[in-house]
Amino acid sequence: MTTPALEARGISTGYGKSLIIDGLSLEIPAGQITALVGPNACGKSTLLKSIARLLPIAAGSVLLDGADVHALPTREVARRLGVLPQAPIAPESITVGDLVWRGRHPHRRLGQRRTAADDLVIAEALTATGTADLVDRPVDRLSGGQRQRVWIALALAQDTPTLLLDEPTTYLDIAHQIEVMDLLADLNEQTGKTIVLVSHDLNQAARYASTIVALRDGRIVRQGPPDQVLTAETVAEVFGLSALVVPHPRDGAPQIFPLGRRDLV
C-alpha cells in the first residue's frame, strides 16, 4: 500500500470529560474513497472531526502527509484538507457564488481581493457539482440536494487533495443521495482526491468506497475492502443486527438485507 494520506496514531478524544475514542489508530489510503460506518454514537463523526482538527484531541496525533494536523497552522491545514461538517450554516440570503467563494479563503492573503484565477476555480467547482446555473440564487431557497451540492462545491473550491465529509447524504432523498455519491466517485476517479466520508448507508458505502472502516464503541472493529468488512459476522458484531449479505447483481459489492425478529422464527 502507498503512504497513507491521513494517519491517526493512538488518538483519544471526546466531549467534556468522557472519552468517546480512546487510543485509536487508523490509516487512510491516499487516492481512495474511505467510508466510516457504525451504529449511532459509535464515534464515527467524532473520529472524522478529530482527524479534521474540528475537535481537539486529548492524546495521540493525526498526521497529514506526515505532518501533525493539530500542530500545523490551521490555515496551512486548510490548504491541504477540506472538511464538510454535517450541518454547515448558510448566512441568510447569501448567493451560491458568494458562498462557494468562501472556499478560497485559505488561499487568500490578508485583505486580498478575489482574482480571475479564483473565479475560474469557483467556476470549475460549480461545474463539477452541476450548480453553475445556480450562481445567483440565494442558498436558502435551494432544495436539499442542490444545497448539498453547493456545499460540496465550496469544499472543491478549497482545492485540497483530501476531502472529509460528515454524512454528506443524510438529509437527502434517494435520488439526490446517489447523485452526491456519484459526484464524489467521479471526483475521486478524475482528480485522484482522497475522500473520507461518514455514512449511514452500508449498501452505498459498499458500492462507492474502496475501504470500509467499521466502528463500534469508539474502536475499529474491522477495516478493509467492502467484501471483507461487510460480512454477516461483522454486521452482527458492529450493529447487533442479523443480516443476509448478497452480492450486488451489477458489481458484486456486498449488499446488506437486514433480518428482523419475524425472519428469524
Partner: peptide, 24 residues
Amino acid sequence: MTVLDHAAKTSPTETAALLRRRRH
C-alpha cells in the same frame, strides 16, 4: 472536470466570466 451530464451546458470559462461580471 465535467462530472454531471446536465452540467455540461455552460463551460467553466463561461461561468468564470459570469462570476467576474457579477463580482465587478
